[in-house]
Design a protein around this nucleic acid. Structure first.
Length: 544
DNA sequence: GAGATCGGCAT
DNA sequence: ATGCCGATCTC
């Protein structure tokens, strides 16, 4: 496609517009005699003026791309020696380290199917799963949500953990189709502050200095699409206006604490949440920090915050800015809101004890990633062909299709358990129930920590004790193949962890928080469909 | 005015 | 091909 040449363009040159794959119109200047191409006006002017060629630009586009791709960091999806041949492409082999039990420090393998999030601890398990998948291949999740071409009027959000960023950060690529083709706009969401940044650069600047780019923004709507965010994630104030006020005051520099600035009205936020969620959901494209129904104490949020800060420090070890900011934050918010992160840092868990993620196990892979980073070692070896785009092991890659006006459509609803789950449901109803119970128990825990919802009607939970019995749980999981019997190490570790976690759990299961409107669980529940997959033992060694 | 989107430019 | 970000549009 050749455009009319502008006045300034030298003789022999033409303006050409090429439609790139991503839908963009790439304009370049082409000299048919020399075959040279320039991408910018400046370059061509400079070239004509001086007769010199500006770095890359004299080369044909293809050359540029070639060279660039050569310089690229090796993608994560590289098969390594360690990667087992039998593991399908796209799967991830995680080498994890036993963090408790009699085999602390020992490594075990974990096979992760990033397309579903299912995690297995033995080869037979993987095969069993693959077998199931085959039977249901036509409805496999991968197909359902695989990156497709969004049609006009649709927006596809490709969500994944933000590569190279601290755990918890979310990268969303908004892919949309317009007359000109497809556009892909990446956005990076800070799970802690809720800010959305438009570029990695912004993110890093933010991490380093706390400075929020003027391009960064905080999503308006209250909907939570971020499955990674735990129930007790920081909450924006109920009223957007108030938040905006806060936001403006603190926008230039803050470290992820903004959102917790509920200015002491958590009750209000509790009350206002449901309708907020109900109303403006259809246009939700971005993740919203989840409303905290209870003031979190030692929550994932802190961990993320810590993670962020750690990350920032590691990026720029010289900066002591964090402490200043924390001080600032602390002095301003501490007394007002229990949501404040600071006091909690002195908690046992943050002081080095194993993070008690049992409660969040159903909610957050990010949490797991954080947990891994904090308390354990984890090595991820993604399989060929899959670029997870993440340095952590969350392997979270989701795709959402958001229809323009589809009432009640939660973006995250697009994430469903594979249909084979349906099948396995019948066979493993018990286990599924168990999973649900566990999930609920997890919520219980988070709810209890706060002790702020005494008036909410407690849910009847007759079998809670039973489910929390590690022996029974183990039995179920063993019977259903969730735990490979051949692996003594795992069994040992599992038991040990069960015991460990049951201790922490017991101590925290006193004040159920079941007053949550069901809508509030949506994101969480949808985000962890595999919780209902019977043979998915991801809650085993890792997070307990 | 904030957020969303478009599109130019640089790499 | 992709990332960044200024400009512009929309609500």
């Amino acid at each position: 496609m050749v455009e009319n040449s502008p006045d300034w363009i030298p003789e022999g040159w033409t303006v050409q517009v090429k439609l790139a794959k991503n839908g963009r119109n790439v304009k370049y200047y082409f000299n048919s005699k020399t075959g040279q191409k320039f991408f910018s006006k400046n370059d061509i002017i400079r070239y004509v003026k001086r007769g010199s060629i500006h770095c890359d630009t004299s080369q044909p586009i293809n050359m540029l791309n070639k060279r660039r791709s050569q310089n690229k960091i090796m993608p994560l999806g590289i098969k390594t020696k360690k990667f087992p041949d039998w593991l399908p492409n796209g799967w991830i082999l995680e080498l994890k380290t036993q963090r408790s039990g009699s085999c602390v420090g020992k490594q075990y393998k974990c096979y992760l199917d990033p397309s579903t999030g299912y995690r297995f601890y033995s080869k037979p398990d993987v095969f069993r799963y693959l077998k199931t998948i085959k039977h249901n291949s036509c409805t496999s999740r991968q197909k359902k949500v695989g990156p497709g071409m969004p049609s006009l009027g649709k927006v596809v959000i490709e969500r994944s953990t933000a590569d190279g960023l601290p755990a918890g950060w979310i990268k969303e690529i908004k892919i949309r189709m317009n007359e000109n083709g497809i556009r892909r706009d990446p956005y990076y969401t800070d799970p802690v502050s809720g800010y959305v940044f438009r570029s990695r650069k912004d993110v890093f600047r933010y991490l380093k200095t706390g400075e929020i780019s003027r391009h960064a923004f905080k999503p308006k709507n209250k909907c939570i699409n971020v499955p990674e965010l735990p129930n007790d994630e920081i909450s924006p104030p109920p009223g957007a206006k108030r938040q905006k006020l806060m936001h403006q005051k603190t926008r230039r520099r803050l470290f992820s604490a903004t959102a917790s600035a509920d200015t002491g009205s958590s009750e209000m936020s509790n009350l206002s949440l449901p309708e907020n969620q109900g109303s403006r959901q259809t246009k939700q494209l971005f993740s919203k920090p989840k409303f905290a129904l209870e003031p979190p104490t030692e929550t994932l949020q802190e961990k993320l915050l810590v993670e962020n800060e750690k990350y920032a420090e590691s990026k720029k070890s010289s900066g002591r800015r964090n402490s200043d900011l924390q001080k600032d934050k602390g002095s301003k918010r501490k007394s007002k809101n229990k949501d404040c992160n600071l006091p909690c840092r002195s908690s046992k868990r943050l002081a080095g004890l194993k993070p008690d993620l049992v409660g969040n196990s159903g909610s957050s892979e990010q949490a797991l990633a954080v947990a891994d980073k904090i308390s354990g070692k984890s090595e991820v070896i993604p399989a060929l062909g899959v670029v997870m785009g993440s340095l952590d092991n969350t392997a979270c890659c989701q795709l959402e299709v958001v229809l323009e006006a589809e009432p009640g459509h939660h973006a995250s609803r697009a994430i469903e358990a594979p249909s084979d789950v349906e099948q396995s449901k019948k066979d493993n109803r018990h286990l599924e129930d168990e999973a649900v119970q566990e999930e609920e128990a997890g919520k219980l825990e988070t709810g209890k920590k706060t002790g702020d919802e005494p008036e909410l009607p407690p849910m009847d939970f007759p079998f809670m004790d039973v489910w929390s019995d590690p022996c029974l749980e183990f039995a179920f999981k063993t019977l259903t193949g969730a735990i490979p019997i051949e692996d003594n190490l795992e069994i040992e570790g599992y038991f040990q962890q069960q015991i460990d976690s049951s201790h922490t759990q017991n101590s925290s299961l006193t004040l159920p928080d079941f007053g949550l409107p069901s809508s509030q669980f949506d994101a969480q529940e949808k985000s962890v469909p595999r919780q209902h997959f019977a043979s998915k033992p991801s809650v085993l060694p890792k997070e307990m």
